[in-house]
Each structure stands twice: as C-alpha cells, then as structure tokens.
Simulated scan of single mutants.
Amino acid sequence: MTPMPAPGPVLRSPVGLSHAVTVLLGLVMLADVLNMAAAFFMRSQMDRITSGVGDVDLTDLDRADSALAGTGVFYLLALLATATVFIIWFHRVRQNAEVFAPDTQRRSAGWAIGAWFIPFANLWIPRGIALDVLRAGEPDPYGGTVRHQGLLNAWWGVWIASNVFDRLATRRYDDAESPQAVHDATGWLITGSLLDIVAAVLAVLFVRRLTAAQNAKALAGPGLPVG
C-alpha cells in the first residue's frame, strides 16, 4: 500500500494579523506620547527647583512621579501585547514564504518564533529571516533586488538604537539623585520615546508592505495551495 504523502505548507492570509499589529503599535506610540508628557511634567518641576523660581508643590512632584510610573506600566503592557501578535504575524509570513519560494529560506519557520528569545542572536537572526521572507514575496524571488530592503534596514537599525537608548535612559533616571540629575535624565527619557515612536512607525510600514506583497502574490500566483 502506497503511503499518503505528507501535506505541504499552505498559504494563510496575514492581513488580519497585520491589522492587529498596526493597532497595537499605535498603542505603543500612544504610550510613548504619554510617557513624554509625564517626563516633560517632571522636567518642569525640576526646573522650578533648580532655578529657585516659585514654590514647589510636593503634590505636583508626587503626581509627576506617579505619571512616569503609570505610563511606564502602560508602555510595558502595550509592548508585551504587540510583541506577541507581531511574532504570530512574523511566523505566518514565514510559513507563507515556504509556499512561495522554499529554497530561498535559510532557516526553518520555527526560527521565526525562537530567534526572538535568544540573547544577542535576536539582534540579527530575525532580520535575516525577514529579508528571506521579503525575497520570497517578490514576483521573481531569484532576481537580484529585494523591494523594501531599505525599509527593513531602517526599521531594524532604529529599533536596536531605541532599545539600547531606552535602557541607558531608564538607568540614568533610576540612578538620578539630585534635581539637576533628574532634570537631565528626563531629557534622555524624552529622546528615547521619540526614537521608539520612529521605530514603531517604521515597523508599521514594514508590516503593511510585506503583507501587501504576499497578498498580491497569492492573488496573482496560480497553483499556490491556499488553506
């Protein structure tokens, strides 16, 4: 009796997941804006102390500190939700690449999930997977150029810079003991939030363009198994 062949990969639409990722990245940007507002509020209180102009209301200081803590928690929750859905989307588009052009993929689909959790390696392996997925979504995967590679590089570079800067800014703020040190540290927090917003915008563009490329190829390509 001839054994049944193992079922191959099938296309699954990433459009719905891309919409969810876009909305969640919007929440991350909102959290960044709120964090910047809280940092500006704290900065204004430190200005009053260091300049000696006017009285400083301890209630305002408590509010500024609570605002920074609260927006920090909101940011972490938004980031966790976004990362979860983004990885699900990323795995989906990697599986689709297995249908479009499996021989252009240097790593298995499982790496699209696992690579994010490997310290240091998560700084370059996911980018390589993303580049392979972009190539598979090209009308000619074996051509010399890959559309949106510049966008991928820009997003990846700003995302890494944002993460590094955010860690430095948070440490600087946590270690600040004098009003002037707190004042200066809030500037770092504001800059870190701006970098994070830029990274989120670039991530939205990357998600939408890769999703659109796969969707267009799925609609145009005859003979592709769809599930």
Rank of each mutant, 00 (worst) to 15 (best):
M1C: 08
T2E: 14
M4W: 13
M4R: 11
P5L: 09
A6H: 10
G8F: 06
G8M: 10
G8N: 07
G8V: 12
P9F: 09
S13F: 03
P14T: 02
G16N: 13
G16T: 11
H19Y: 10
H19Q: 12
T22W: 08
L24E: 02
L24K: 01
L27S: 10
V28A: 01
M29Y: 01
M29L: 04
A31L: 07
A39K: 03
F41P: 02
R48L: 14
G52H: 04
V53K: 12
D57M: 07
L58D: 13
L58K: 07
L58S: 11
R63I: 08
L68Y: 00
G70Q: 05
Y75S: 05
A78E: 11
A81L: 14
F86M: 02
I87A: 05
W89P: 01
Q95A: 15
A97T: 00
F100V: 02
D103M: 09
A109Q: 03
G110I: 03
A112G: 10
W116Q: 05
W116E: 06
I118M: 13
P126N: 10
I129P: 00
A130R: 02
V146A: 08
V146T: 15
H148Y: 14
Q149E: 15
W155Y: 04
W159G: 01
I160W: 01
D166F: 12
L168R: 05
Y173E: 07
D174E: 13
A176R: 05
S178T: 15
A181M: 05
G187V: 04
W188L: 15
W188D: 13
S193V: 03
L194F: 11
V198H: 01
A200R: 02
V201D: 00
L205N: 02
V207C: 02
L210N: 01
Q214E: 15
P222S: 09
